[in-house]
């Protein structure tokens, strides 16, 4: 009786362990499949022309040109949005961790609120911004896209910074104050400096988000075949270029969408690997 029961329990564990293996395998298989599919479809269609040229006449019917406009547009947009978000996120995150050090309850409420904002989908930010733009009579432009995406990635960036700032030991805070530092000096000379690698990772993560987003820029940044030369001009973005080209019935145009998807995937993977390397370095430093 005893033995049977024990065997029964072990079987259950064994079955679940196999299921866990299967679940892990599914995830590994799917990510492999995604990268493989995108690269297999995209790489053959990839050419120097696609990366280095803007669309020429008849491009969307199979004519010559490339998606340089979208690549550059995305870079402008992602850099702009990341910068703008940074300008607001850093003081916010420092304020939560330095000035509110003694107000745990308030810290919690703010963190909770920002976490909730993190969950709001970009399409809502996009629709909201579009509504405001109509109301104020602003047309789709690089600037509008940058502002919208910045608002959208702010919660991600603040919480990312917050996670590392939280780790700064309390003793550092206290000893800083007792040495006569102002909270301003404490914020930027101690907390910020201590956490630069972690903050960089948060920025990189947000940059990736900004680069890959469609729903917010769809409403706000517009689309154009030219590379924007000022903030008030509309700008194409890479994800949107993929989306538009893919809806074309012409195979050649679709192939270019695959190529663009490969470029986008490659850029995002590069950012991810970079972020990981930065974080690893950071961890090494913090252990010693």
């Amino acid at each position: 009786m005893w033995g049977i029961k024990l065997i029964g329990k072990k079987t259950e564990e064994l079955i679940f362990k196999q299921l866990m293996r299967l679940a892990n395998a599914i995830i590994l298989f799917v990510i492999g499949l995604i990268v493989f599919t995108i690269m297999r479809k995209g790489l053959p269609a990839l050419s120097w022309e696609i990366i280095s040229q803007v669309p020429k006449g008849g491009y969307y019917f199979g004519g010559e040109g490339g998606v340089l406009n979208a690549i550059v547009g995305s870079i402008y947009l992602a850099f702009g949005a990341t910068f703008l978000a940074f300008v607001i996120s850093l003081p916010s995150a420092l304020f939560i961790n330095v000035h509110l050090q003694k107000h745990k309850k308030l810290q919690d409420i703010i963190r909770l609120f920002i976490d909730v904002m993190w969950g709001i989908p970009s399409v809502v930010y996009g629709a909201f911004a579009f509504g405001i733009m109509i109301y104020m009579g602003i047309r789709a432009s690089l600037m509008a896209g940058i502002v919208t995406v910045a608002i959208f990635i702010m919660p991600i960036m603040i919480r990312g910074m917050d996670e590392v700032l939280k780790m700064v030991p309390k003793t550092l805070f206290e000893s800083g104050l007792s040495l006569g530092s102002t909270k301003y000096e404490l914020s930027y000379r101690i907390f910020f400096k201590q956490c630069i690698p972690g903050i960089a990772t948060a920025i990189l993560l947000s940059f990736g988000r900004a680069f890959g987003d469609v729903a917010a820029v769809l409403f706000t940044a517009g689309f154009t075949d030219n590379i924007p030369t000022s903030l008030t001009q509309p700008a194409a973005t890479l994800p949107l270029a993929i989306f538009f080209q893919l809806s074309s019935p012409i195979p050649e145009v679709q192939n270019r969408a695959y190529a663009a998807a490969a470029i986008l995937t490659f850029i995002i993977l590069a950012i991810s690997v970079f972020g990981r390397m930065a974080l690893r370095k950071y961890k090494k430093n913090s252990i010693n």
Binding site: I27, V30, I31, I34, I38, G208, F211, G212, D213, V214, A215, P239, L240, I242, F243, A261, L264, T265, I268, L269, I271, S272
Partner: peptide
């Protein structure tokens, strides 16, 4: 997996 953009 989390970083791959929606459009991809």
């Amino acid at each position: 997996l989390a970083g791959i953009p929606s459009v991809v």
